[in-house]
Design a protein around this nucleic acid. Sequence first.
RNA 1: GUGGAUGUAGCUCAGGGGUAGAGCGCCUGACUGUGGAUCAGGAGGUCGUGGGUUCAAAUCCCAUCAUCCACCCCA
Length: 446
Amino acid sequence: MATFIKPRVPRGMRDILPEQMIRRQYVINVIRDVFEEFGFEPLQTPALELSEVLTGKYGPDAEKLIYQAGHTGGKEDISMRYDLSVPLCRVIAMYPQLPKPFKRYQIDPVWRAERPQKGRYRQFFQCDADTVGSDSMLADAENVNLIYQVLSRLGFKQFEININDRKLITGIGQFAGVPTEQLGGLYRSIDKLDKIGLDGVTAELRENEIPEDVIEKLLALLQVEGDALTVLNEMKQQLGDFETASEGIADLEELIGYLTTLGVPEECYRVNVAMVRGLEYYTGPIYETVVEEPKIGSITGGGRYDELIGSFSKQSFPATGTSFGIERIIDVMEEFNMFPTTVGKTVTQVLMTVFDDDLMEESLKLATTLRQGGLRTEVYFRPGKISTQMKYADAKGIPYAVILGSDELASGTAAVRDLATREQENVPLDKIVDHINQRLDNDEIK
RNA sequence: GUGGAUGUAGCUCAGGGGUAGAGCGCCUGACUGUGGAUCAGGAGGUCGUGGGUUCAAAUCCCAUCAUCCACCCCA
């Protein structure tokens, strides 16, 4: 009796089958095109890092989610990477000769042992673009522009890039005057503003035993509305006495100025002083993109982390970057049918049918011609009923079928059938490649 | 990590202590040169997994795993 291992994958991980893989590749290609358009260079690092490289960077809560990756008898303490930014910092410290500013992108999986949910997986891809070695706010503005470019090219209409600054947040902490050990709770409560509203935040602050007069001052800050510069002006009024906050505000003003010059539309971003972000390594501007529908968490995140490289080397460099989560982007795009019709179910463009054994040779020759003409062509392996072969093409979503029977062969033609419209035309053998290519171009335009 | 819901055919689900149903899909034929229709036949399920209660469990109980939802956190 054969016993079988139940086929399954670890929690929070999944296979990505061809139909879905085609959509993923489309999204990744758009992102890569934009990254390269801005002069970011590709980089790849190992999936595994020495544990000491990863620890102490993300904060205690996040660190619990890092996968250990040792092997039997292994002498090294190894973990699976949790993000792409920390490995980048390791690279910068290891190769100090790289010319600065160093702009790199990386599109690779990371692992986090979280409890899975929709849009939340234990293995997922991050698409990161980072600039190392420049403290210019232009680098940060470029990050925001990157987000705007990618999302609008993917067809997103409703998205909001939230922008804040760690220094400004620190200023709010000083302004509130709460002791250091309460700061974390304070930030966490504020961060929920969009979710639980002013009343919810008030309640949470009370629970955290923040004094009533401080709560009032904070609420006044959080209620500030308006366009980016209005919000910043208001912050200047209220927080101007705190040096760190002033620096943050000045940085953001510069950043917003660049956004305007770069042509990033105002309605795509806002200064949101309540947006905090958990990762400990951020030091300056931070950004996060949310879509309202469906509620799926943030689809991009990022910010400036000027101190992180300093944990690997005496010679530190300022750095800033942003990260796209393609799983969530794809989930949203699927929910709203945002994929262009040219992103099909299959890579194959033509099915070369085989009429019978006698015509196999001619059919294979024609398939070779089609392939040489740049057409992705699949040959049906079992000669026989055309109906079966048509069904196969239909099921796979192959747009065109070529039929070469004895009648066609006698007249030096083959029938080209459009599966979608059911139109069929006899075309001379030497014109077939052009004929199909032209039809594919027309499909593209539609 | 905490709390909750769900888990029956490829898919969507119904049923409910006496060893399984529907719709859609799939396969075959009517249709020996053409896939979305019709008709006729057919295949396919250890009722998530493991234990317990019972003469009997898919149905009740426990555990476990997976998915989803909220919290936490985040891409």
